[in-house]
Design a protein around this nucleic acid. Structure first.
Length: 553
RNA sequence: GGGCCGUUAGCUCAGUGGAUAGAGCACCUGCCUUCUAAGCAGGUUGCCGCGAGUUCGAGUCUCGCACGGCCCGCCA
């Protein structure tokens, strides 16, 4: 089922081609862009192809538009085309066609809006990937709905999507985590031990030590702190990862894989990657460390360390290996990472490294600006090491999954946002998410009423949906497939929340002024089809957002 | 010093180079005997941060400036 833009674009392109041929013009037309005018007087859709072709065809926009429109006669979809303004071509959809689409949308049901433009592409979306040294909190939670929803959109467009959580279970922070657990373990045994200055202070560290003690007894008692740390760190990560899994499920997120960095390191793939970089002449030695040679455009640094003088790989070095692994050994066509804004410098480094390996085109990143967390009107810094944070789970329990997801998905990733905890709890009933869900529930209620009165859609004639309010609703639903394409192209999943609110608004307005279930049997049937179409569209949108579509509220 | 993101209504924010710039919240006025009032209708609000440039056309692109957030480690 092609989108409206695709249908119109094809017909306009054909008309332009005919115009050029028959008028004997020279040159190529501009790209056909189909847009929706803000002003309804300008038609349902419009194209600026005449303006865009004026230069190459060396004709005035008006002239090109006239020639195109005269070759764009009314057909099954287009009721009329006219030239307006400085050369716009305004297109009106045929009401009969629009009406029939209500039926098509209802029949498509959970296939509505799906496409195959990305069929055959294997795409990994990697998100959250928080350090496995403590519970998830809101700062790293924004990437959750963003990545999850982007994954859903890409899958909707036909891609083979894998959602991955990269578990960084090696390195300095990992070691420090193990030490922190060891200290708590010793304290539980009544020994004298103090947490290092950089240690993890959260209460959960003691919980982990207690769990280990309960499960394994005192058999690690005689070991040195270093030995204990080495044993406890993976156990601690296991504990945190299992917690993360549980909380992500509460958030409506299920990962296909939890990839272990330590496992990759044991496989020798890191050394292999350094070798590959060395063969390309991209690394050099200095001060006993191995450096990646920064490209010339980078003015502030000559290079970045990938193996320390101690022999320990850096995070940057390991991330190069990890991305190379995904894009070569694992056969992924694209890898899309959802990262917090504080990693933008890392992004610059990674782009350079990926370019050095010839993988740049397949590596994409969505950077999201930080969430500031307001608690009792105070902006909370979220330091995990100091144990100062409100966990994601606290937020989910207090606010609910749907409002939390909706709130985080409402704004573009580029804009910063404040999450006011008290406001979110207190105003959750005024949250726009309920406005959207209510529209869906309202339709469900209409169907319940219809069922009670023995009314159904059997034998309905969608062609009766000719009233302006009915037409507007169907047209609004028809925007959905184009919107999904747009969201997929630009990774802009917030477009979906915005659309959901607008469509819900249209439905509420229609509901107020138009009766669906009435004595008019034929009209009732047709309007039930209309309601079905809106319900399907709302459900599809909410489904992509990972937000439930309730039958009643 | 360098870099990334932002600056649009009182507040929080939408706005693939198109025609008269939008939504929610807040505020005011109406609307529940008919499919759910978590709703609807109407009203008020804008030097789109500032200054240049690019072009048929700029909130949108380029450059400069100001302000805010983040970053520039042999941490991750």
């Amino acid at each position: 089922m092609p989108t409206v833009s695709q249908i119109l674009s094809a017909r306009v392109a054909a008309a332009v081609a005919r115009a050029i041929h028959e008028e004997g013009w020279q040159g190529e037309p501009g790209i056909i862009e189909i847009e929706r005018p803000a002003n309804p007087d300008h038609g349902d859709y419009a194209t600026n192809v005449a303006m865009r072709s004026a230069r190459t065809l060396r004709r005035s926009p008006q002239q090109i538009a006239e020639a195109t429109v005269s070759r764009l006669p009314p057909d099954d979809v287009i009721a009329g085309a006219e030239v307006a303004g400085k050369g716009f071509i305004n297109l009106r959809l045929r009401p009969e066609w629009v009406a029939r689409q209500a039926d098509e949308i209802g029949r498509a049901a959970d296939r509505y809006g799906r496409a195959d433009v990305l069929a055959g592409q294997r795409i990994q979306v990697e998100f959250i990937s928080a350090n496995p040294t403590g519970p998830l909190h809101l700062a790293n939670a924004r990437g959750g709905p963003l990545g999850d929803t982007l994954g859903s959109v890409l899958a909707f467009l036909g891609a083979d999507v894998t959602r991955e959580f990269y578990v960084e279970d090696s390195g300095t922070q990992f070691d420090m985590f193990g030490q922190s657990i060891a200290v708590r373990y010793r304290q539980l045994l009544g020994e004298d031990a103090t947490l290092p200055a950089e240690g993890y202070q959260g209460e959960y560290v003691t919980d982990i030590a207690r769990t280990i003690l309960a499960r394994e007894g005192e058999r690690f008692r005689e070991l040195s702190l270093e030995e204990q740390a080495r044993i406890f760190a993976p156990l601690g990560v296991e504990w945190v990862v299992s917690e993360d899994q549980r909380v992500c499920e509460k958030f409506g997120i299920r990962f296909d894989s939890w990839f272990s960095q330590a496992e990759m390191m044991r496989s020798g793939y890191f050394e292999d990657t350094v070798k590959a970089l060395r063969e390309r002449g991209k690394v050099y030695e200095k001060d006993g460390a191995v450096w990646f040679d920064a490209p010339d455009e980078i003015e502030d640094k000559e290079g970045w360390v990938i193996v320390r003088s101690s022999g320990e790989p850096t995070y940057f070095g390991k991330d190069i290996a990890y991305h190379r692994l995904c894009l070569t050994e694992r056969g992924l066509d694209r890898k899309i990472d959802i990262w917090g804004a504080n990693t933008h410098y890392h992004l610059i480094q990674m782009r350079a490294a990926m370019r050095a390996l010839g993988l740049e085109d397949r590596f994409e990143v969505v950077l999201y600006q930080f969430v500031r967390f307001l608690h009792e009107d105070v902006i909370l810094g979220m330091s995990r090491r100091r144990g100062q944070f409100i966990t994601l789970e606290d937020v989910l329990d207090a606010v609910g999954k749907d409002p939390t997801r909706f709130f985080l998905l409402q704004r573009s990733a580029d804009s910063q946002l404040d999450f006011d905890f008290e406001l979110a709890k207190q105003q959750s009933n005024e949250n726009p998410v309920y406005y959207v869900q209510y529209a869906h529930a309202r339709i469900a209620s209409i169907f319940r009423t219809a069922a009670e009165r023995g009314a159904g859609v059997e034998g309905a004639d969608a062609g009766l949906l000719t009233e302006p309010a009915e037409q507007e609703l169907v047209k609004h639903c028809l925007r959905f497939p184009d919107l999904v394409l747009e969201a997929g192209r630009h990774h802009g999943v917030h477009l979906l929340t915005q659309y959901a609110v607008e469509l819900a608004g249209d439905l509420h307005n229609f509901y107020k002024f138009n009766r669906v279930v009435s004595d008019d049997v034929e009209r009732t049937k047709a309007r039930l089809l209309l309601m079905k179409a809106v319900q399907v569209t709302l459900r599809q949108t909410l489904g992509l957002l990972g937000i439930s579509a309730p039958e009643s509220m």
